[in-house]
């Protein structure tokens, strides 16, 4: 039983990495109606920037807010410079831009920081808490708490604020949003900035666990897309919860299904997603588009 609980804790902590990134993917989708393939690489830039500040002697309490704010600014700049010029052309053009951004940022990280992996100490310290025989590290507790807070904050932003409502309106029908005095460009920039900040947090939570490398978020990004599909791209809560569910399922499958070692463990969560999407294509918490008349 202790072993199962320990695996559950490990799965929850791992799932929080997917949850954070899935949350960022969902934010861009809610605010712009677009899937951002470069979300993981934006998180990598944030992680490396924080690592550089830490190496320069910045304490985490100072470095993290600066990096999160910088990630937001990076998101807004990328939207303004690279995404907006192709807005309104075709969905394929937008997908191509974010895919190119993925490759470009990956190369940029390698040029600036090199391709050698680095380790980075957890900003939550190296201590651990014992609950019976189950061990919870400070990194696990901290990352779960941070992702939970971010998830609630993002959910409240879209549900209760005028800015969040305007962003959703632009993503759904930019032509009508304009007639209400809403500037789509500004809303899209805010959406990318918010996603940049959330993705930056995800990068900071991931780096101490998987280590720093230009490819550190490629696996998590795939899982984040899967998580958002499972929970619903249009639901920040569903996307984050999907990430946690995937983390637990993957960990459990790798530990308890002998034939599914290593990457083969991915078969289980993706099998679950396949079944969910067959029954509810908009995801567990997504709302299917309703169009009558």
């Amino acid at each position: 039983m202790t072993e199962i609980l320990q695996q559950l804790v490990n799965g929850l902590a791992g799932g929080c990495v997917y949850a954070g990134l899935a949350l960022a993917v969902s934010v861009v989708f809610q605010g712009t109606g677009l899937l951002n393939f470069a979300q993981g690489e934006m998180a990598v830039v944030a992680a490396y920037a924080a690592w550089s500040l830490a190496a320069a002697g910045w304490p985490p309490v100072a470095a993290i807010p600066v990096v999160v704010a910088g990630s937001a600014a990076l998101g807004a700049v990328l939207e303004r410079v690279l995404v907006r010029p192709v807005e309104g052309t075709s969905p394929l053009a937008l997908i191509t831009v974010t895919a190119a951004l993925l490759l470009g940022l990956n190369g940029l990280v390698a040029v600036i920081w090199g391709t050698d992996p680095h380790s980075w100490d957890s900003p939550f310290g190296a201590s651990a808490v014992r609950l019976g025989d189950v061990v919870l590290t400070a990194q696990q507790i901290g990352s779960v708490a941070v992702v939970a807070v971010v998830m609630v904050a993002v959910g409240c932003f879209f549900r209760f604020t005028g800015l969040g409502l305007r962003m959703k309106a632009v993503a759904i029908n930019p032509g009508s949003a304009v007639l209400l005095g809403i500037r789509p460009g500004r809303m899209l920039a805010v959406g990318w900035a918010l996603a940049g900040a959330v993705g930056g947090v995800a990068g900071l939570m991931t780096a101490p666990t998987v280590g720093l490398s230009p490819e550190m978020m490629q696996g998590p990004l795939l899982m984040a897309f899967a998580a958002a599909a499972l929970g619903g791209f249009a639901s920040p809560f569903g996307s984050a919860l999907g990430g946690v569910v995937l983390g637990v399922l993957t960990t459990m499958a790798a530990r308890y299904v002998p034939a599914l070692g290593g990457d083969l463990a991915l078969v289980v969560p993706f099998g679950v997603i396949f079944l969910v999407l067959l029954v509810k294509p908009s995801g567990l918490f997504g709302r299917a588009a309703v169009v009558r008349s």
Partner: peptide, 15 residues
Amino acid sequence: GTFADLTVLQNLRLG
């Protein structure tokens, strides 16, 4: 030009 995925109340709030 309504926002189909938003609720009626959210549409009105946008006004």
